[in-house]
Simulated scan of single mutants.
Amino acid sequence: MRKIKKIHKAVNAPMGDLVTYRAMPTHSVEYIDPFLFLNHHGPQVYKPNNQGLPFGPHPHRGFETLTFILDGDITHQDTGGGKDVIEAGGVQWMTAGSGLIHAEVSSEKFKKEGGPLEILQLWFNLPAKYKMVKPAYVGLQKDKIPVVKEDEGKVKVNVISGTWASTRGPIPSLSDIHMASIELQEGGSITTSIDPERNIFFYVVRGAVNVNGEKVEKLHLVEFANEGEEITIEATEDSYILLGHAKPFNEPVVAHGPFVMNTEEEIREAFRDYQLGKMGSWEE
């Protein structure tokens, strides 16, 4: 069995009226190479005639984002040409690469009608050789994400990138990052094996599970050691988890605000390029 190193609780980090828990970085875990950051927004209910999500135009360079929309929606727009509205059950994968400006706000319909909202955003680092690739964006609604059912249908694995069993996710990853979200009914269980060379990202969004015999409740991140391969997950109540894995890059990580590079000079260059308009100009 894969050895558990530590279980970390997400910290409460509200953003105005947006309920937010930050699972990484916190005082107890900085990052799990190449997984850099996770914000968990919600769950909460917005009233009609609300302001929606607060993420207006801002730049990024040097990494990728994967956004899970569990409830509510996101209107995405970026200077690389990406633009759409993704609804509950869908995901968005953005490669910031050499740099772009994007906004993630609620649709006009959501702002007018309100409703439940729960959204998670995970950041992946890019290795030095890919930091300046051309930006890219993929948005997928729920029906475009393949589902693998296990344990007589008590477990549903939504395969986003990489493979699960023989099912390949629809989003190609530059860095061979495998990502899935897993929905488990109470009593459902699943076992998988992950090469000990690969680092694991494991976060419980909803519910509670036993992982290799240890109880993990919602809003907790599991940090695994690089020993053993097998992971067994058993749901003690209806649960939703994020599970990913990748080989660590073992490169310097220098992060400053919206940019993640390998050196301080590259961060300064990112700010200069943004100010010079090299990441595009914003048009509503």
Rank of each mutant, 00 (worst) to 15 (best):
G89I: 00
E234N: 12
E150D: 14
S181H: 14
T65Y: 02
L276K: 14
G244S: 08
A10I: 10
L117K: 08
I267R: 00
S107M: 09
I177P: 05
Y31M: 09
G52E: 02
K6C: 01
S239V: 04
I7C: 02
V133L: 07
P57S: 11
P14E: 05
P127I: 00
S189Y: 15
P54A: 06
W123M: 10
N210V: 15
L120D: 06
V222L: 03
K3D: 09
L36S: 00
L140W: 01
S98L: 08
E283W: 00
A96I: 05
D238H: 09
L100S: 06
P172G: 07
G188H: 12
G115C: 05
W282A: 08
Y240K: 15
N50K: 06
N210T: 14
L174S: 14
I160A: 11
K3C: 02
K3G: 01
E108V: 11
V254S: 02
G62K: 04
V222W: 06
T79Y: 13
G89C: 01
P127K: 10
L36I: 10
Y130Q: 10
P172L: 05
A103L: 10
A180M: 15
G280F: 15
V253D: 00
P48H: 12
P258H: 05
V155E: 07
K6Y: 08
V155P: 07
V216T: 04
I177G: 05
A136M: 14
L242K: 09
H58D: 07
S173C: 08
D176G: 11
E237T: 11
P116T: 03
R268L: 13
K154I: 01
H8R: 07
K47Q: 13
Y274V: 02
V45E: 07
P116D: 08
G277E: 03
V216F: 13
E251P: 04
D151H: 04
T232L: 09
A96Q: 03
G162D: 14
L184Q: 06
N212D: 10
K111P: 05
G207R: 08
M261S: 03
G97I: 12
H256C: 09
E217Q: 12
M24H: 08
E186V: 07
E104D: 13
T263P: 03
I4G: 00
L70N: 11
V253A: 01
G277M: 04
Y21M: 15
E113M: 08
Y46N: 06
